[in-house]
Design a binder for these strands. Structure first.
Lengths: 238, 238
DNA sequence: ATTACTATTTCCCGAGTAA
DNA sequence: TTTACTCGGGAAATAGTAA
């Protein structure tokens, strides 16, 4: 599909050639080639746009000069503003799920200086020595989890010691139950499936909220647009 | 005219509802109302967009969930980028005309402290005591002169003394013959018609270039987009 | 070369309606 | 209620061609 039809494409073409500031010289066949439509259609569209007040035409000798009217310019500006607001507003992602107990290995890993120091530095808080495991309740939440994993922007690097190597992780800052600063961890080599997220926070969330297994909790992430789109797209181009 | 047809409007609608991040629940009739088209057409368009790979649909029970695919998102981003580059690139306006001699009153006016000090302060240079009169050669140039007058952003205010009042002016910075800093003056109550511009500069341009009446000169203005569009549109809304 | 008319085809919209 | 089919009318695109 071409997203835009002939008329809109003509307006954009003119704008790209500063047709709001001065006349643009065109021929119908050259424009037709640009737009991928026939010369006849181009001619008709120009006549229509003129009648409808989006452009003015001046035909001198064999040369045609076209200019956007204010109405035409406004139409483009409206569209621009609409797209701008789409691509520049922050997006809020909410995950809901239930607390469950893991094997307790989260506490061990976080306590390792190789992880602890990175978390402290990159997340800006001293993590409680443990992670809260959350099983997502809905398919929607699972999909959003996958989105978040794609756009997670904080990288925790893996490392090695004498005995073994430790894998990397990505994470993204979130709000726990509309209140507490935390981060969602996406661990590279995890034994959990995509329905599980692990949360790290400056406090023991389990204690602070008196959480038992099965209790519902909520995670909210505010995605900044630039981050969101660059990561959404680059992730797939790799 | 509606700038966008059904399909494009659906993609934008989805994007506005964060349909790139998660599924959006819709009904064909609700969407139809939003877009100003029929339920049947909406249904057909959704089927087509799905087939063409711009959206995915999931129909559970009586509920339909729609999401933008990466292809769909890309389509919108492309358009956004295209419009952005239109509305954010600077526009260069060139005026060509011929020098002619006026009555010499430019020198008198500029020498008045009421004007001199404003010019010095707002244009950032000490003006030569005199203006260079230029008669524009083409209709194109005259139209661009009118555009420049609309978007001229530096206001020189009028004032009064015991004897009389002095009118205001607008001006805009320009480059003279691709080289010299200058400004084009748009004087409120001038006896010149729209084919004439007056130029003020830090030097005596006539002397510096050895200009005689009839010599061709060139003025170039670089319009910054924000300025350009806000002035183009607000001027007509007044 | 141009632009743009007329005739034909192709495509699209929406009413009616089924599932 | 939904979604989405068929089908008729009309709009839009192009071929052919005039000016």
């Amino acid at each position: 599909m071409r997203l835009l039809k002939g008329k809109e494409n003509i307006l954009i073409f003119l704008a790209e050639n500063d047709g709001f500031a001065h006349e643009v010289r065109i021929t119908t066949s050259m424009l037709a080639k640009q737009l991928g439509i026939s010369q006849q259609t181009t001619s008709r569209l120009l006549i229509q746009l003129d009648k409808e007040g989006y452009i003015t035409r001046r035909i001198a000798r064999k040369e045609t000069y076209v200019k956007l009217t204010e109405k035409g310019l406004n139409e483009l500006i409206d569209l621009h503003v609409r797209l701008k607001s789409i691509f520049e507003h922050p997006v809020k992602i909410t995950l809901e799920g239930k607390v469950f107990s893991g094997l307790g290995e989260g506490a061990y890993y976080i306590s390792l200086p190789g992880y602890y120091n990175q978390i402290k530095e990159k997340l800006g808080f001293e993590p409680f020595l443990g992670t809260l495991n959350i099983r997502l309740s809905s398919n929607t939440a699972i999909e959003e989890r996958m989105l978040l994993e794609k756009v997670a922007d904080i990288l925790i690097e893996g490392f090695k010691d004498e005995k073994r190597s430790y894998g990397g992780a990505k994470c993204i800052k979130a709000i726990f139950n509309d209140k507490d600063e935390c981060a969602i961890l996406f661990i590279e080599r995890t034994h959990h499936d995509a329905s599980v997220v692990e949360v790290v926070a400056p406090y023991n969330l389990r204690e602070k909220y008196g959480l038992k297994d099965g209790d519902k909790v909520k995670l909210t992430v505010n995605l900044q647009p630039v981050l969101l789109f660059s990561n959404l797209l680059s992730a797939s181009n790799v």
